[in-house]
Amino acid sequence: LVRYRTISKIPQITLNFVDLKGDPFLASPTSDREIIAPKIKERTHNVTEKVTQVLSLGADVLPEYKLQAPRIHRWTILHYSPFKAVWDWLILLLVIYTAVFTPYSAAFLLKETEEGPPATECGYACQPLAVVDLIVDIMFIVDILINFRTTYVNANEEVVSHPGRIAVHYFKGWFLIDMVAAIPFDLLIFGSGSEELIGLLKTARLLRLVRVARKLDRYSEYGAAVLFLLMCTFALIAHWLACIWYAIGNMEQPHMDSRIGWLHNLGDQIGKPYNSSGLGGPSIKDKYVTALYFTFSSLTSVGFGNVSPNTNSEKIFSICVMLIGSLMYASIFGNVSAIIQRLYSGTARYHTQMLRVREFIRFHQIPNPLRQRLEEYFQHAWSYTNGIDMNAVLKGFPECLQADICLHLNRSLLQHCKPFRGATKGCLRALAMKFKTTHAPPGDTLVHAGDLLTALYFISRGSIEILRGDVVVAILGKNDIFGEPLNLYARPGKSNGDVRALTYCDLHKIHR
């Protein structure tokens, strides 16, 4: 019993810090008490220290592992850092350059016999395009090294910054494609005289377009951006097909006994025919423009016929181009109408809503002055909100995010209106959640004399007048207030005048 009563005193000691020596009952000389009392004092002292730490809000209350900052290894790049964003855009520009100039170089340097010394005699450094290609190869190699040090988000939505895990993730992902696209074939085969082989191998750079397509997928929600990307894709495919079309004609031209190829026909049409040795002929500019003209006309199913396939190889390629053109029509131009419709969806919704308003007016036989006010209010409210119901949009977000959005939407009023000066951010967040926005066209009466005042109004834009009878008592403008002081009276009061809008007004109100 003594032991039980001794232990039962522990909660009292913990909360009230009572010393055991003052209790005459606990001072009985028993061996059990002498053993338990020192333990009680020690526990009391420890609990006292913990309570003191909690009340003082000291940093040592938290466990040590929670006080440590997340460790980022040296030379690790955050995937959302500004440097990584700028670097990704730079790589994107280099990939676009590669997609345009690599097929052009591979096709127009394929057994090209233009006048001038061969590239091997001039030297590697004197070729501007080769120098640019070398810079692109170096940048792609540097990009691989950067990807080995860039964080990523795993399946659990955690940012991984450990170098080993980053390397394994990159090896399992895009490393092989990036490595093949970054191989400097110019340096590996330079001086061997195989410019045709170098041009063909350099087309491996186009593998990076797969990554670019995935990154550009984030802009699919913007109709104008999608339309622009589709047109660029169409032009890029036409450019690639033009390079292939020229390569076919250029390879067949020296081996044909009869002059029936499209390059021969082009030379005869523009007065620059090929001679018996295969030299001469149109310039590279004429060849490229004509090839691009043929691919565009074939892809769009126009086909004027002034550039036509004559050999079997050219006919087979033309059939493939027609098939590609039909697929592009289905996948690209078939979506253009939907994209344009999405661009004008706001206008369509406006006309639909206006039609419903006019049908309501016609069905209920609203008189002319009231009908005009109804239409003007709808037009003004639509121009202010673009038909978007803010309350319906915010309803799907958590309250903390709703408060931040409301604070942002009402920031101008909260910053410049005098009653809100000096208020804490928590108070402003709470008030912003209570605001209701209303609009009024010129001549609209917001409050009639004798109406119950259940709200306090803040003028965000425009001006109003307060009338008693036919006498203008006051004219209020931006950041002015009218209405009933909230919670100042037990019952809502009545208006002693009319409140009429002089201009288009936007008002925020808080109800009782």
Rank of each mutant, 00 (worst) to 15 (best):
E64K: 12
Y65A: 11
K66V: 09
L67W: 13
P70E: 14
P70R: 05
R71P: 12
H73E: 12
H73K: 10
H73P: 14
W75L: 08
W75A: 07
T76C: 04
I77W: 01
I77N: 01
H79G: 01
W87C: 01
D88S: 01
W89G: 04
I91P: 01
L92T: 01
I96T: 01
T98Y: 01
A99Q: 01
A99T: 01
P103N: 01
A106W: 05
L110M: 15
K111T: 05
E112Y: 15
E114F: 11
G116R: 15
T120Q: 07
C122T: 01
G123V: 08
C126T: 01
P128R: 03
V142D: 01
I146R: 01
N154P: 03
E157W: 10
E158G: 13
V159L: 05
V159N: 01
S161T: 12
S161A: 09
S161R: 08
G173T: 13
L176G: 12
A181M: 01
L187V: 13
S194Y: 13
S194R: 11
L200V: 04
L201V: 05
K202G: 01
T203M: 12
A204E: 01
R205S: 01
L206G: 04
L206C: 05
L209M: 10
R211T: 01
V212Y: 12
A213I: 05
R218T: 08
E221I: 03
Y222H: 04
A224H: 05
A225G: 13
L227T: 04
F228E: 01
L230W: 09
M231T: 04
A238F: 03
H239S: 01
L241A: 01
I244M: 05
W245C: 01
D257Q: 06
D257K: 13
S258W: 11
I260W: 01
P273W: 01
S276I: 06
S277C: 04
L279G: 14
L279P: 04
I284V: 09
D286M: 01
A291Q: 01
Y293F: 11
S297K: 01
P309Q: 01
N310T: 15
T311S: 01
T311D: 01
N312S: 01
V321W: 01
L323Q: 01
L327M: 04
Y329K: 13
A330L: 04
F333K: 03
G334W: 03
N335W: 08
S337R: 06
L343A: 12
S345D: 09
H351C: 03
Q353I: 01
E359S: 08
F360L: 04
F360P: 02
F363E: 01
H364C: 04
N368F: 05
Q372H: 09
Q372K: 07
R373H: 06
L374T: 04
E375T: 10
E376C: 11
Q379V: 07
Q379L: 06
Y384L: 10
N386H: 04
M390F: 07
M390V: 05
N391T: 06
A392Q: 13
A392L: 08
V393L: 08
L394I: 08
C400L: 07
L401D: 03
I405F: 01
H408G: 02
L409T: 08
Q415M: 07
Q415A: 10
H416C: 12
C417E: 09
K418P: 10
F420Y: 01
G422E: 12
A423L: 08
K425H: 09
H439Y: 01
P442G: 03
T445N: 04
V447C: 06
A449K: 12
